[in-house]
Amino acid sequence: MNKAIFLFTMKRYLHWVNLLVGGVALTISVLLWGLALCVDSAVTKELVRSCLFGPMVAIVVSYTVISPQVANSQRRKDGEYLSLIFSRPISRWSYVVTKWLTGSVFVLAIMALQTTLSLAAAYILSVMWRGHPQNIVDGYAITDAILNAFGVTALVVFIASMPQRIAVFVFILYAYAVLFLTLLVGTASFVSLSLDHVSKTVTAFGQMLYSIFIVGMDSYHVINASDFPVASAVIYLSNIALYLTLATLIMSYREFFYAND
């Protein structure tokens, strides 16, 4: 973890332009969520919770925090001048891990901010309008937020470590893979319980493949399952290690110099 890069990324993201844009977006979403939290329904509460702590928020936030700096080298004005930074005593690995931690901290901070503000908005609205706002914060929510933040940010760091044009493709590929493989491989794996040995092996490989795309962990599901799902935990941890290793590998392989522009 490199202190300079950490502070740099924080400072850069807390630039007034970002704060203004983020503030407007935050206000709108907070009002909507606040309103939704006034509705007396457990399902609405779950929907708001999945919006506030779900992987989507983490993807969007971490991509905006990390990506514009990693993905481009020296072309964009507001990016980092990586050829200069990498001439300093920073290993590519520490750069990657710093970006990962910074992104995760940011994601968590924004989730916390959104949640607090949404609850505050819900409280104010409910005082005016009806009885109690719904509380969405509990141990599971906090655990999920942390797990999602670290998992998703690792994925984003991996994607953002690629040259920008490739990164866009990988991002699209990721979205499609999640959509289709969830249906095809994810659910097909349950068939294997009643199928023969060969198709079981095929599904097991399918699951290995599919599990590369899993970034978060549903702590509620894991903790409340009748059998502790070891695979979920291992998949989650190994994916973080995989994304970070690949990101370091790509960053180490890439050339950050204007001679080859």
């Binding site: 300079a4 890069i5 740099f8 630039h15 001048y81």
Partner: peptide
Amino acid sequence: FLPERPSFESWMNATQFLKFHQML
């Protein structure tokens, strides 16, 4: 290292930039 085409982090000022590189 002084690169030929300096396009530094433009949102900083000189002091911040030097502080950043001092830290690096």
